[in-house]
Write a protein that binds this DNA or RNA. Structure first.
Lengths: 157, 157
DNA sequence: CCATGATCGACAACCTGGTTTACTATATGG
DNA sequence: CCATATAGTAAACCAGGTTGTCGATCATGG
């Protein structure tokens, strides 16, 4: 058995695992008062962080245009997860910060991710999970997380 | 150090690894005569397979509506990757099959995925990679691969 | 001190891909 | 022979991303 699996299975497995985590986390979120957040939003909140940011900065962190970041912020503002305030030191900028609701969502999702990780550690053993993560770090060295999934996946150009 | 990484890193690592593979494969494809295929298309080709399928069947396999499948097929047909023919046994159905170009693309991508897998095996060691794949299979047991990434990622639940 | 250039946020037009709803054509079974 | 189910297509719409543009506001160099 030199070649147990065809090479195309590896990316599928990676993605299935990714999706399994995200789905589990969002099932958790729905159960804890955040039924309307989309998978994307979690990453946006993470990128905003507790100290706030601006549209341009958010765009850079997520690897999308500032316009796209602005649209996302507008949507999140309407849902009550973030709020915008003028920057006292620079009238061009608008500070984007998480509301209490946004902070709560971030806390719930952090707990959820930790719980999932713990469950996985229990399933395959903590040392196996640690090895898995170490190997992933080696193979896909830590780049910034980029959020342009739809465009990346579907558009090439 | 009981908890070396916060739980939210795990999905990010998984996705980064997934993306690294896909990007490498498509760089390969671009170098071998298929510069205009998008990440999505590879999965579509895989779902069509060498024996062909229909729009409805394709939609089921990819977890998207038959209309979306039809649109994708139309695009691929225009690019010369698939062709449609009437089903002699059922005048409602239209058989979708890969053209020679489509088959070639599938072959190139298969070779590419194998090469990437081999490279990874070399990097972390074959037994580590085997362990990684075995663990992923355990943690995200083999579901059907679903292609509705854009909608899934961005749609509410 | 001010002109020039860079930066921030917003708007508009457009693209891709997905969804729902609706309709036609063809099978199939009571 | 008719009722129902299925295959494919089209239209209208939505979400999210992109580029291009613009006004307002800094920052800097002459």
């Amino acid at each position: 058995m030199v070649e147990p699996t065809p090479g195309y299975e590896l990316p599928l497995q990676l993605f299935a695992a990714f999706r399994a985590i995200i789905d589990a986390a969002h099932a958790d979120l729905a159960r804890h008062g955040h039924p309307d957040v989309k998978p994307m939003h979690g990453f946006v909140f993470q990128a905003i962080g507790t100290s706030g940011t601006t549209a341009v900065e958010l765009g850079k962190r997520l690897g999308i245009s500032k316009q796209a970041a602005g649209k996302t912020i507008a949507g999140l503002e309407q849902q009550g997860y973030v709020e915008r305030a003028a920057d006292p030191g620079d009238a061009r900028r608008k500070l984007v910060r998480l509301t209490a609701k946004g902070v709560d969502m971030l806390a719930v999702s952090a707990r959820s991710f930790d719980a999932i990780q713990a469950r996985w550690a229990q399933t395959i053993g903590p040392e196996r999970l640690a090895a898995l993560q170490a190997d992933l770090r080696t193979l896909a060295p830590g780049e910034v997380f980029r959020l342009d999934i739809p465009g990346w996946f579907g558009a090439d150009r």
